[in-house]
Design a protein around this nucleic acid. Sequence first.
DNA 1: CGTTGGGTTGATCGACCTCAATAAAAGTGG
DNA 2: CCACTTTTATTGAGGTCGATCAACCCAACG
Lengths: 245, 245
Amino acid sequence: MLDLQSEDAPLTLCPNGKASSECAHCKVRALSLCSALEPDELEAMDKLARHVSFDRHQTLFSQGEDAESVYNITAGSVRLFKLLPDGRRQIVGFALPGDFLGLSLSERNAFSAETLSATSACQFPRAAFSDLLDAKPHLLRRLHDMAGHELSLAQDQMVILGRRTAEEKVASFLVGLRKRWARIDGSTVRAPLPMSRLDIGDYLGLTVETVSRMMTKLAREKAIVITPDGVRLLDPARLEALAET
Amino acid sequence: MLDLQSEDAPLTLCPNGKASSECAHCKVRALSLCSALEPDELEAMDKLARHVSFDRHQTLFSQGEDAESVYNITAGSVRLFKLLPDGRRQIVGFALPGDFLGLSLSERNAFSAETLSATSACQFPRAAFSDLLDAKPHLLRRLHDMAGHELSLAQDQMVILGRRTAEEKVASFLVGLRKRWARIDGSTVRAPLPMSRLDIGDYLGLTVETVSRMMTKLAREKAIVITPDGVRLLDPARLEALAET
DNA sequence: CGTTGGGTTGATCGACCTCAATAAAAGTGG
DNA sequence: CCACTTTTATTGAGGTCGATCAACCCAACG
């Protein structure tokens, strides 16, 4: 997942189908693929794009299917996961506003994507988008840099999954998520949690119960406050110490 | 890690410093970044490249340092790892002949790289290589496709780390490694293990002892044979069943 | 040969999982 | 707005897989 964002648009970037004016209001332009593009690149992307909306718990695409589209998330939140034949699930990431789905441009989806909340996105046909990349090297370079960032995050997640305790996992998750929200809505201590405890567990390689226990523990120790919609970080220093690389 | 390979070179691809003739003997061209490049791209890469060799257990680069170079591994093996302040280690990958180090082109190294055995590589100055990518979009596209593949492997590894048992982890590792060797040297059942049990443990989120126990278990059950230099897969079907997605 | 770095094996321990019950939200229909 | 159901979160008790601690083996090497 990579971020894009804006407040109110100096120039239209994020394309959409019905009204290209929507780009002008795109909340997530500055940090997205759309940022820092040349006018001709924006123009070309605009032509390809279709703005789509999803309710809570809808499927964008499924693991193993032909990858028809790539997406730029403009609002909401999405869980990306892989299933084992016996039902075990690993969430490989959460997509937030500004994130791009389909960086690897593979023919088949390597994972499934389901919305966690009502979600909006710019949808592009994969094949046409791939062709566009070949025509616009600067756009490709931007995408590649995003892929590099994504790869780096994936390696960080390997450390968390392979070598951290349950408490450290939860602390890392909260700190990392708050940083991502900070880029999106500027919040400094709030971290909304659109995903369930079960989702968090499947992201961190833990059970629901362990996630709940660690959250309770961190709250008891006054490192966080649990709110209806997520958490508030009371003692970022303590959390960062638990999460530190 | 991405693969490149060849037997004997139809045209020189893999660049190196002293004698550009070395490219003609490059054992790992076909699957590498160097494959499927235009003559002008090969020419440009050749100009940038320096052929370097390392003994066993030498450091190519370290986590946190300025990333001066990117590498194309032509022979040997390398461990890529991240360290936590308290000494815990997570190996994020093993680089084999044909693999490219530096896909993300970031300014700082996100991990350290140490050879597991005597290793040869084509070394490129990172900044110049990055400039070359902007000049040769086709090369950039090739690199991006490799990055996409790498990202997909990283997500597979997340499933292994987060949701698999010790036995499944070891089986997955052996199956995956044999597949990689198959592309390099065509071996169908042999999987050389240049890395120690400790390295395997730090790759799979296990201890040395557990890795050893699981290897012994698989050997006792006649799924593998442990040899001085690695393993031979006796019952690939059983191993794949343990590893299946 | 003594030393050193892996590797294997055994005995014990503990972090996290499993199973179970309860509590608190969030819908749903009257 | 209030019963009633369903979903999600929390808490507790007990079990287990893999970690930890500790020998021991063996091959490489000075």
